[in-house]
Design a binder for these strands. Sequence first.
DNA 1: TCAGGAATTAGAATAATTCCAATTTAGCTT
DNA 2: AAGCTAAATTGGAATTATTCTAATTCCTGA
Lengths: 145, 145
Amino acid sequence: MSYSLTSSRNQTFISTLREKGLRPTKQRACVYGVILDKRDHPTADDIYDRVKRHLPGTSFATVYNCLETLVGCGLVRQVNMDRSPTRYCPNLSPHAHFRCIQSGKIYDVEIDKDTLSRMQALVPEGFEAENLDLSFSGTGTPPHD
Amino acid sequence: MSYSLTSSRNQTFISTLREKGLRPTKQRACVYGVILDKRDHPTADDIYDRVKRHLPGTSFATVYNCLETLVGCGLVRQVNMDRSPTRYCPNLSPHAHFRCIQSGKIYDVEIDKDTLSRMQALVPEGFEAENLDLSFSGTGTPPHD
DNA sequence: TCAGGAATTAGAATAATTCCAATTTAGCTT
DNA sequence: AAGCTAAATTGGAATTATTCTAATTCCTGA
């Protein structure tokens, strides 16, 4: 029953971890997999629920550990909006997030290269930005949902 | 001993609250004042400490209540970076934040009109953004500090 | 196969924030 | 100025997401 990744995902997964000298465990694979399978923005809680269906013995601590590892490897991204629980995102391309105040749903928003470099240019002399986060909140009525 | 605002601040403070039918209490004035006096990015905890020096009886709940009120009125801004405690900011002009990973300090970063409107333009059809947040993190060695 | 470090586990601990019920206060009315 | 009422404040308990801890289990290389 233990979750298995598609072979292409599995290759990315294994090689990325190995590069950092980390072990590709079944829990890590499962956490990674459930985030990729449903391309939403699950919380650690959501992920825990999904993982438990495949690996019932998994603990919360493990989910957090795995998430930290995966984020550290750049396999998933962390999304923090206001004070709400951290969410995790399989979309690795540079993008912003939009949160609908009514539904709580989070949507990816593409950032074009030009706007991205303008934003990066805002960082003043003497500062070196490793990370950029852009998020919007408001109301959204997406065409298909 | 109870804190008093400068008269120009006091006018803004009183009229802004009155517009919303809210009472300009001494606790609210004090919270507002200590944020404006030291133009840094204090946490609720920092603010609590400062307020206590002027109004020793003040409780934590009140500080949180006042902050919520002031943010709701637009008198101060709330700054959330990752999971770290919420910070409060007296700078109301549109600006981004830069957090230095080493020192934990937060700096304001100006956003020019042009870049701002480009960012706003990223929001797709069917979505209405009420709020935009841009933040950077990395290392910073500002000239004077 | 075995040793030793890495990963996982359950549950306790932490930290920021919110909730609650009781008390106090501000701003009318008279 | 005194009384009234809703709004604000208070202390402490509760909540919630997350992290820590110490014990156990699991990989992986020798």
